Simulated scan of single mutants.
Amino acid sequence: MADKEGFMYFDCQGTKTDNAVRDIPVHQKLIDYGVIDWIKSGEKMLEGKDISQKYDRLSVKLGLPRENRKGEPLSFYSLRHSFATGLTNNNVSGLLIEDLMGHAHEGIKRVYIDQAGLIKLNDAVQKLSYDYD
């Protein structure tokens, strides 16, 4: 967790591939729900193979929604799908989605396009809206 250019973001290091090393801005809703305060309290959420169980405990503790609008249960991994779908539904470019998801640019894009800056990534993330309140 870090703060740069006035934005809170997750500094993803030590992931599966070089492409997965990236900064992911924190959505304001996570700050409002207290996720950042919880992480800063010293809890270790993003370590180990039991991340789904840790997510489940955190979501209960913070009162996060347990299912989506369709009534399907939410899990840690389902958030990745919801994130990508939400970005797409909010007209975020495929390139920004690739950067946020940690995917490599394909073909000629790999040669000519660098990862987007944190300001553009933050603008994309903040477009997501959740109507659970």
Rank of each mutant, 00 (worst) to 15 (best):
M1P: 05
A2C: 14
D3P: 07
K4I: 09
K4Y: 10
G6F: 02
M8W: 14
Y9F: 11
F10H: 05
C12K: 06
C12P: 09
Q13G: 10
G14F: 08
G14C: 05
G14N: 08
T15Q: 15
K16P: 06
K16V: 04
D18S: 13
D18A: 11
N19F: 13
N19D: 15
A20T: 10
V21W: 05
R22I: 01
I24D: 00
I24H: 00
P25W: 01
P25Q: 05
V26T: 03
Q28Y: 15
Q28I: 14
K29S: 11
I31S: 01
Y33S: 15
G34C: 02
G34I: 03
I36E: 12
W38Q: 13
K40R: 14
K40G: 10
S41T: 06
G42C: 01
G42I: 03
E43N: 14
K44H: 11
M45Q: 09
G48K: 10
K49N: 15
K49L: 10
D50G: 13
I51L: 08
S52P: 03
Q53E: 14
Q53P: 02
K54S: 01
K54A: 01
D56R: 13
D56Q: 13
D56N: 12
L58K: 04
V60H: 13
V60A: 12
K61G: 03
K61Q: 07
L62C: 06
L62W: 04
L64P: 02
L64V: 04
R66D: 09
N68C: 06
N68P: 03
E72R: 13
E72V: 15
E72H: 15
E72W: 09
P73I: 11
L74Q: 07
L74G: 02
L74C: 06
L74V: 10
S75H: 06
S75P: 01
L79V: 06
R80I: 04
R80A: 07
R80V: 03
R80S: 07
F83I: 02
F83S: 00
A84V: 09
A84S: 12
A84F: 08
T85F: 09
T85R: 10
L87N: 07
N90R: 12
N90S: 08
N91V: 10
S93Q: 03
S93C: 05
S93M: 05
L96P: 08
E98S: 15
E98L: 07
D99L: 02
D99Q: 02
M101K: 06
M101V: 05
M101E: 02
G102V: 00
A104K: 08
A104C: 01
A104F: 00
H105C: 06
H105V: 04
E106D: 11
E106L: 13
G107Q: 06
G107L: 05
G107M: 04
I108C: 07
I108G: 09
I108W: 11
K109S: 14
K109I: 10
K109E: 14
K109W: 15
Y112R: 06
I113N: 08
I113G: 05
I113R: 07
D114S: 15
D114Q: 15
D114W: 10
Q115T: 11
G117A: 03
G117D: 05
G117W: 03
L118S: 05
I119L: 07
I119W: 03
K120F: 14
L121Y: 00
L121P: 00
L121A: 01
D123K: 12
D123Y: 13
A124C: 08
V125K: 01
V125Y: 00
V125L: 03
Q126I: 01
K127D: 04
S129K: 15
S129E: 12
Y130Q: 08
D131Y: 14
Y132I: 13
D133H: 12
